[in-house]
Design a protein around this nucleic acid. Structure first.
Lengths: 159, 159
DNA sequence: ACAGTTACGTTACTGTATAACATCCCCTGC
DNA sequence: GCAGGGGATGTTATACAGTAACGTAACTGT
């Protein structure tokens, strides 16, 4: 993975954590929502809405685009997944307990995405914006490059 | 405009500058490319590919989506326009002579976009990424908030 | 039983982007 | 002059992204 991974990334662990979070928030992690979260976690890479839909169908579920987008809205609101604007795709959040805006490191070799979430980056953006009298309300930071693993293997792991 | 504007933003001046740049680079700024650049400059706000297409047609040109996307690819390669991933839209570059990745300030009140292009922000991102052994090759920074003009007029100028 | 809320199903549509192939035109070499 | 090549554009069709609007099922609380 491109960046820090101080927690368990296995799908089942992520589901369990999500279950916990939703419970304490009084939110309902339904079967469909669990399925979509599991699909996103299992993907390891950003996955598009229609790819999620395909997987749902291959699991025997009926469904149409709104099914997926509604579910994604829920997962986004709960901070369980993030949306990558530059890819029109979704990734599981590495630390849903901590609400954070998104700073992402996207490896152009292996396609994997890590979260940066640097308070220093965020603060610098706010300061520099303030210098031109711009009041920040939300940031999108998506950084393309090569992750540690792919720097070690210039051929590039594709799995 | 949200941010600094140290240069002439009139469409004709932008076209002239583009002409110059393409000439020195041995690139062909055709009538179509000039038209699309003029449309984007005149828009003042980010404009979508299909809105560009509509304007081209209203100028009497034939055209289909690939016409516009190919032209945008050229203008993007030449650094004459930028793409805003979070809006699926395009803006004219404020300073095409200087190649730069994009840092944008998007005003959520008036919809105008300014370029931040802070070397400090860029450097901070590179440093923080390096700390997790990620080698940056390109950055996407799109910041939502309120520009100076809209902060002064809380009702928000819409023109 | 009843209304209200939440989640999901379904149809239809708009918007964004690209693949693949055809054509035109200009230029160069012969 | 004309054959061939490359760049730019035209054209058709389609894939991918996202939403509106409406219907329905199930689970509340009263």
């Amino acid at each position: 993975m491109p960046a820090e991974a101080p927690h368990d990334h296995s799908p089942s662990a992520a589901i369990a954590a999500a279950e916990q979070l939703c419970a304490t928030r009084g939110q309902n992690l339904t079967e469909l929502r669990r399925s979509v979260l599991r699909i996103i976690c299992a993907a390891e890479r950003p996955i598009g809405a229609y790819a999620i839909l395909d997987q749902l169908r291959s699991e025997g579920r009926s469904g149409a685009p709104p099914t997926v987008y509604r579910t994604l809205d829920f997962l986004l609101e709960q901070g369980l997944v993030h949306r990558l604007a530059s890819l029109n795709a979704f990734v599981a959040c590495c630390d849903p307990a901590e609400r954070h805006g998104g700073q992402f490191l996207i490896c152009e070799a292996c396609g994997r995405v890590g979260e940066l979430n640097s308070a220093r980056v965020e603060a610098t953006i706010v300061e520099e914006a303030a210098a031109v009298r711009f009041a920040v309300s939300a940031q999108t930071v998506e950084v393309l490059g090569r992750c540690a693993a792919c720097l070690r293997l210039p051929a590039g792991p594709s799995a």
